[in-house]
Simulated scan of single mutants.
Amino acid sequence: MPYPSKQADTTAPSITRETIPDEQWNDWRWHMRKRINTAEKARQWINLTADEEKAMAETAGKYRWSITPYYASLMDPDDPLCPVRQQAVPALSELMEHTGADIDPVGDMFYRKTNRVVHKYPDRAILLVTETCPVYCRHCTRKFHTTEVDGTYFEKNEGEDLDDDLRYIAEHPEIRDVLLTGGDPLSYRDDRLEEIISGLRAIPSVEIIRIGSRFPVLLPQRITDELCAMLARYHPVWLNTHFNHPKEITPEAERAIDRLLGHGIPVGNQTVLLRGVNDDVATMRFLMTELLRIRVRPYYLYHCDNVTGVSHFMTSVEKGWEIMEGLQGHITGFGVPQYVLTTRLGKIPMAQPCHRLTSEGLVLRNYKGQEMVVDSAACPLTEADLDRDPAAREKGRDRK
């Protein structure tokens, strides 16, 4: 990934968290109204490099960008390689062409059934709620669909009613789990969001409602008691978010998570492996342990998709394996996410196996690289091996 130009101007920014009254800072609507979306506004928070200013100009009309004041307050004002800054400030790398890049490598449009419904897996579906986000992440899998200014996200206008979408879900009773995503569903007001959720809850076959939202990271003030109480009326409701770096785990974010959990809403995390942001073992290990500390369950580690405008964030799969090797055994098991690559075939588990079959038996390897051999008498590898062992067969019967 090309490094940004060196920063020459280190003038102190004119706006910091301390300059904003608490009444405004604690109001998520104020942050949404005051989103940073011009170079002039950005310079109030950070010292822009020449490359960043050029990227803002050259991505105009192609990729939207905006940053909440809260998320801007987490950025190093002088370091363009700040892991928070790289996720939110446009970069010239977004305009580079990369081999194999695709606007939709995960197949959203391939599996689209209605204006909003994407039905890829048998028992679950995605409901694309909105194009709006508090911050347009530069690494977004749906970068083209959610941020291309001419609009490619909806077949119809976003404001169209949801009748066809809800009808499709109701007519497919195999769908028991619906994920609200976008864009970010929590961009809507509580009452509008409740209309959608209540419509889903009225469908008898829908058992679980999930929300994919980065608001706990980008604007945790949005996670109000009123929002959580509304969501709790429609249980079971789950929320998955995207903490990508330990710097994003702030006291405000922790309080937002605590509110969700206090209302019975489990929170999982889907980290994206990002070159130059979190692609080292120490950072990823610290992130996972911090997530556990605030009671967020690490769920997925996504290999960064080769999305048009995003490819510069990609690492090698080998780097992903290195990260996973540095997590497994070094932190508690439920703190280790599943490493996956998202494709049109679905999410493919990518972790290296810790076993291999040889003529001597099953060779097992632990996190230290130590190995042992277990033969088929101690651990039957096939049903035929089990059948040859009367004691194992009897134990099998006892379990039934």
Rank of each mutant, 00 (worst) to 15 (best):
P4K: 09
T10L: 12
T19W: 04
D22Y: 09
E23A: 14
Q24M: 14
N26S: 13
K34F: 00
T38W: 03
K41M: 10
R43Y: 00
T49L: 13
T49M: 12
E58K: 10
K62T: 02
Y63K: 09
R64I: 02
D78C: 05
D79V: 13
P80M: 13
P80S: 13
C82R: 11
R85W: 04
A91D: 15
L92K: 04
S93K: 06
I103Y: 13
M109Y: 01
R116D: 01
K120W: 05
Y121R: 07
Y121L: 09
I126K: 02
T130G: 03
T132L: 05
K143W: 01
E148S: 14
G151Y: 07
T152Q: 13
T152V: 10
Y153I: 00
E155F: 10
K156R: 15
E160H: 13
L162H: 11
D165S: 14
H172L: 01
P173G: 02
I175P: 08
R176Y: 07
D177H: 12
S187Y: 01
L193K: 03
E194D: 04
E195S: 10
E195G: 10
G199Q: 01
A202K: 05
I203F: 12
E207W: 07
E207Y: 07
I208N: 05
L218P: 00
P220F: 06
P220L: 01
D225F: 09
C228I: 11
R233I: 04
H242M: 03
F243N: 06
P246R: 09
A253N: 14
A256F: 08
L261F: 01
L273H: 03
V277R: 04
N278Q: 09
T283Q: 07
M284I: 00
L287I: 09
L292D: 04
V296T: 00
Y299Q: 05
C304K: 01
V307W: 00
S316K: 07
V317N: 02
E322I: 08
E322M: 14
M324Y: 07
M324V: 06
L327N: 01
L327K: 05
L327F: 06
G333R: 11
G335A: 04
T343W: 07
L362H: 12
L364Q: 04
R365A: 02
N366V: 08
E371N: 09
A377N: 10
E383P: 03
G396I: 03
R397A: 11
R397I: 10
